[in-house]
Design a protein around this nucleic acid. Structure first.
Lengths: 139, 139
DNA sequence: CAACAAATGCGAACGATTCGCATGTACGCT
DNA sequence: AGCGTACATGCGAATCGTTCGCATTTGTTG
């Protein structure tokens, strides 16, 4: 188990937390809790599913991971916070997730009825067909 | 019960479906299923909750309503499809939802590794504090 | 090494949504 | 108008993701 560079202050370093972190460090995919659990099963010291939820909640609060449930709507996905601003395109056929390199919000001022609205973040996904599925659909 | 202009072909006009449609026609808010049920309770012929789900699924497939679960993540919200392109800003404190009049995607080409990706839609929300909640937070 | 607070495991609880199946009803046909 | 059938509904149970309560274990600090 490797030593993460920036362990948040005041958090105990437990086997379970390090294991979850290791899974997230090992990929750039967005993982659901069950996917994280599946990858944990391979290694020893597998935490229970409630612990995984608690660890992820904690990590999210501390800014170690980012969470979004925008992709499938009914299941949250998590990724290590690499301090990149990222959005994703999702293939509606095969559910493949493709990272986007740019962001339309960089130079966008929303037009809102509440003019005092203080923007702190945003969430964006693009839906469509990946090249492969688009070809399968034919013309 | 009024006659909707564009009833999708091949759908039986039932009391329950018309009632759900009426609720959605009566507001521009985004409503959860339980909110819809609450508004149905006032009128007679209240459909069961499973029927409300089924009616909404059907309406969504037919393009009569739009569904999104991006707002709260764990609860879907529905609105009549008024064939407007709309996004929303959500106050993270009071959960107020404010419609946005413009869209950053109008002139945006996503940069994706899959160059054949065929975009068919997108979903965007802005998070922040509404004027009121922002003031309460103080400086 | 002891002590305490914090973390974990387990299973139960929960809310949103879906499903199965028996019953009811809209709509086309006569 | 009346019939018949495919489709819609109601009800409750099942499911899925997630949270919670509580007894037990484990990091960390001194």
């Amino acid at each position: 188990m490797n030593e993460p560079r920036n362990w948040p202050t005041g958090l105990k370093k437990t086997r379970q937390r390090l294991a979850v972190l290791e899974v997230l460090e090992s990929t750039r995919e967005l993982l659901t809790v069950s996917e994280i659990c599946a990858r944990l099963d391979a290694s020893e010291g597998t935490p229970s599913i409630s612990t995984v939820y608690r660890v992820l909640d904690l990590f999210e609060k501390k800014g170690v991971v980012v969470k979004t449930n925008a992709i499938s709507g009914d299941t949250a996905v998590y990724a290590l916070n690499r301090f990149e601003h990222r959005h994703y395109a999702i293939c509606v056929a095969c559910k493949k997730i493709i990272a986007m390199d740019n962001c339309p919000m960089e130079s966008f001022v929303p037009s809102l009825a509440d003019e005092g609205f203080h923007v702190v973040g945003h969430d964006l996904q693009i839906m469509g067909f990946c090249r492969e599925c688009d070809q399968k659909r034919g013309g």
